[in-house]
Design a protein around this nucleic acid. Structure first.
Lengths: 189, 189
DNA sequence: TTGATGATACGGACCGTCTCGTATCGGATC
DNA sequence: GATCCGATACGAGACGGTCCGTATCATCAA
């Protein structure tokens, strides 16, 4: 028995056009005003082609997130060996984007999308450095003697990301150095 | 010149029916599946009566929040004199509601609503103890010698609420004692 | 031959506006 | 004080629009 198939193969061009259109419209209009018909039109594609491969708007946005089409690469957390400076750099970069008018809509839309869709929440957390990057960087810092070895890395990561998110939602101007300082100071080795 | 009006006065019965219906349907279906027509039907009211007094779904939900129809009163932060225990009690209560299936939908919907609507974000922050309650409780604790006098109260409050919110979004099981402990431990006087 | 594609028609859900007829208020008239 | 009148909120629902998710074309590449 062979699982060979005849007929045309899934069009990669259509897939990319759809994902790019989704990213464009998401950034322009936000999650709630993102429509499947809009994506189809922008991508020059039939609606059915979208529904054939994605079950919902949420899956579409989640895949854009995975593909890195929604968040800039600068959100990668650096590791220069200086834990505090790296965290401040990263926090400042995230806050800078969050304060830019376009970026603010993007962040708020991502949060709204994450609140409505578990897939997106997981992907967003990854993209924003959830389990992996922030917590990992904290561990590396501890290994380098810049943080208590037994510091609660997961809680600290959650608090840092949480403070940024809530600050963005409530439009509170946060100071990266104060924020990182508050969380690190008490836990330095 | 007088600003007297003739004609019937705004119906308080209709207002309450609308707000109650909004709260009920919000808790049942979440923010995005809350429809004006659904509210009108549930409240036994004409759609126009809603649109006459509220410009959007967001304003409606924000007013429910103000009226205390969406969040239980138990979210009031106690002050027994023991800062750490009070914060742990409050955090545990919030997390308890967030873990209940109905409560989870409610919390996630509130976050989604806050991300989309600035009014709701402000009201939610108030209801959840934003500037006022958590930060104020921290100050009181400092005055009682349970926290450094010069601790960054605002950042700590933001980090605590943020950690709870992000934990709820990403469905991370948080431990109230660890969370509060991490934030308080080395800011104690 | 098979199956993905762009296009488009379809019924249905909600939107926000508009207009009914009805009920209730204040002010003017008697 | 009784009565009428203009103003206005009310419940109900019709209306044109947008978007949903599904179904069905003819077309075209493997």
């Amino acid at each position: 028995m062979s699982d060979r198939r005849s007929g045309p193969v899934r069009s990669e061009a259509a897939r990319r056009a759809i994902l790019n259109a989704t990213a464009t419209l998401f950034a322009q209009r936000g999650y709630d005003h993102l429509t499947m018909e809009g994506v189809a039109a922008e991508a020059g594609v039939g609606k059915q082609t979208i529904y054939r491969w994605w079950r919902s708007k949420g899956e579409l946005v989640a895949e854009c997130l995975i593909e890195g089409l929604l968040l800039p690469n600068s959100f990668d957390l650096p590791d220069t060996g200086d834990l505090r400076r790296d965290l401040e750099t990263w926090t400042a970069e995230v806050l800078r984007v969050a304060r830019d008018p376009d970026g603010e809509l993007l962040m708020r839309s991502l949060i709204a999308a994450a609140a409505q869709n578990a897939d997106i929440a997981v992907r967003l957390r990854d993209s924003l450095g959830g389990g992996a990057s922030v917590e990992g960087r904290l561990r590396a810092g501890a290994a380098a003697g810049q943080l208590r070895e037994d510091a609660p890395f997961d809680v600290l990561a959650e608090a840092l990301i949480g403070a940024i998110v809530v600050g963005a939602l409530a439009r509170i101007p946060s100071d990266p150095a104060r924020l990182v300082g508050t969380l690190l100071d008490e836990n330095t080795g």
